[in-house]
Amino acid sequence: MKVLVPIKRVIDYNVKVRVKADNSNVDLANVKMAINPFCEIAVEEAVRLKEAGIATEVIAVSVGDKSCQEQLRTALALGADRAIQIETDEKLDALNIAKLLQKIVDEEQPQLVILGKQSIDSDNNQTGQMLAALTGMAQGTFASEVKVEGDKVNVTREVDSGLQTIALNLPAIVTTDLRLNEPRYASLPNIMKAKRKPLVVMPAADFGIDLSPRSKLIKVTPPATRKAGIIVDSVDTLIEKLKNEAKVIS
């Protein structure tokens, strides 16, 4: 079976983002970018399914300008077989991304689509669920275990109260949580090999979808800052401060 893995190029998770002085957005000029960590876990899971003989082909897809080819090459180096870039210079809403991905699903007919549960930039946590709705597929979000069994996939999900296991008819959508796997590092030979793997560019404008924005960013401001407090020299002082100054314990 084919596995489709949509991925996103985002700010590197170690970088602390800054807000532009005019409050129009965050400043991403000259900032280190990377594959979204949850998307990397998605690629790893798909590659493991292939190594286990369950998946036959892993296709990575990303929506963005030319620069996201860098992350698609990363996915190829991690073991994806081929890549598709849906080219656009616009920053699209999750719904429009899901609509573009739906077309790829229609064309490629994957049995499983694995996505990251959220991107660490917009923190929306939407695309996988929206793609599931548009394609009429079942969804297993926040997955910590994925087991394909016959025409079903069992997904163990990280929920607020612990773990929940559900069974989904295939084809299905899975979104990854942290503990699903630990992604491998791409080896140098695989990075070299990835450069020769197929990467197809498809302009978003050719998809025949109305991609007009669904929301407007009014402003972006820095969060309220906490001022640093004091270092206390002993546990006794700490307890005294918590009782009498902060009044949060009695």
Binding site: D123, Q129, M130, A133, Q139, T141, F142, D160, S215
Partner: peptide, 22 residues
């Protein structure tokens, strides 16, 4: 929370509207 995060984007897509999260 996990329930709302799970089903709400599905509702939004079925209604053909964006979701404003969190």
């Amino acid at each position: 929370l996990t329930t709302g995060k799970n089903f709400m984007p599905r509702v939004a897509a079925l209604l053909d509207v964006a979701q404003i999260s969190d």
